[in-house]
């Protein structure tokens, strides 16, 4: 079985700070990580490989050259092959353009049975790239997958797709696109053997240019993207509140309530 996983390197948003003077992101020193949902996507592919050892897992990522570090982590966890689409021509792509580039790379990789993406990447939180790759490749999709199982002699999958208030059980034939949420599994750690393999100079981690994936340059990059940033800014800090006075909890609550009543809030 051949599986493709789409994975993105993202800044760890829990570590992100804003420069109060310029209102811009401070990226220096912010660690980059494998996007959380994508690590669930990779884990599911590796689980299938655990069960069907002749499975081949290819991770595809698009991003700057340093995303190679994340791909090494994917390999150290057990991926067989990693591909980084890295080219100035694809820089600044929005989700539509990103999906064009990744779909082109997938076509270049050739036939496969399953393609996984994460539900969403934590830098942009769009959750659009997975479905858009599926559309560009003409594949059926199931998003928000929280459980999956291969059925019909590995010709189809049964999945549980989360909804706000429950789930649907869906059957779909391969090949198809599934997007993973964190309930799907618990990602494994890198193995010592895996780290060793990923660190070899001839480790199968390749970088592909726009020319390599034979993508139409009119469909990738900042200029071709149908959405553009008009303005970006930080929310205004709220007016400062007050610390409620009082020597004891009882006094504090008394003061709070008299304040709320005075302001007609309660």
């Amino acid at each position: 079985m051949k599986i493709i996983v789409c994975a993105k390197q993202v800044p760890d948003t829990t570590e992100i700070r804003i420069n109060p003077e310029t209102g811009t992101l401070i990226r220096d020193g912010v660690p980059s990580i494998l996007n959380p949902d994508d690590s669930n996507a990779l884990e599911e592919a590796l689980r299938i490989k655990d069960e069907y050892p002749d499975t081949h897992v290819t991770v595809i990522s698009m991003g700057p050259p340093q995303a190679k570090e994340m791909l090494m982590e994917c390999m150290a966890k057990g991926a067989d092959e990693c591909i980084l689409i890295s080219d100035r021509a694809v820089g600044g792509s929005d989700t539509w353009a990103t999906s064009n580039a990744i779909a082109a790379a997938v076509r270049k990789v050739g036939a496969f049975d399953l393609i996984f993406a994460g539900r969403q990447a934590i830098d942009g939180d769009t959750a659009q790239v997975g479905p858009q790759i599926a559309e560009k490749l003409g594949l059926p999709q199931v998003t928000y997958v929280k459980e999956m199982e291969l059925v019909d002699c590995e010709k189809a999958v049964m999945v549980k797709r989360a909804l706000e208030d429950g789930y649907q059980e869906i059957k779909v034939e391969l090949p198809c696109m599934l997007t993973a949420i964190k309930d799907l599994n618990k990602p494994r750690y890198m193995s010592v053997k895996g780290i060793f393999k990923a660190c070899q100079p001839d480790a199968p981690i390749r970088t592909w240019s726009a020319a390599d994936i034979e993508v139409d340059l009119g469909t990738v990059g900042l200029k071709a993207s149908p959405t553009n940033v008009y303005k970006s800014f930080t929310p205004k800090p709220k007016d400062p509140g007050v610390f409620v006075e009082g020597e004891t909890p009882s006094e504090q609550v008394e003061n709070l309530l008299s304040e709320l009543k005075k302001k007609h809030i309660v």
Binding site: D94, T95, W96, S99, G124, D125, T126, A127, Q128, V129, G130, P131, Q132, A134, E135, K136, Q141, T143, Y144, A162, L163, E164, S225, P226, T227
Partner: peptide, 21 residues
């Protein structure tokens, strides 16, 4: 969970922009 499954698929088919959330 449905809107975010459907809208990107439509945007990709029509080749138009989509802004999330």
């Amino acid at each position: 969970y449905i809107g975010r499954d459907l809208a990107p698929r439509i945007a990709a088919r029509l080749d138009v922009g989509l802004t999330a959330d």
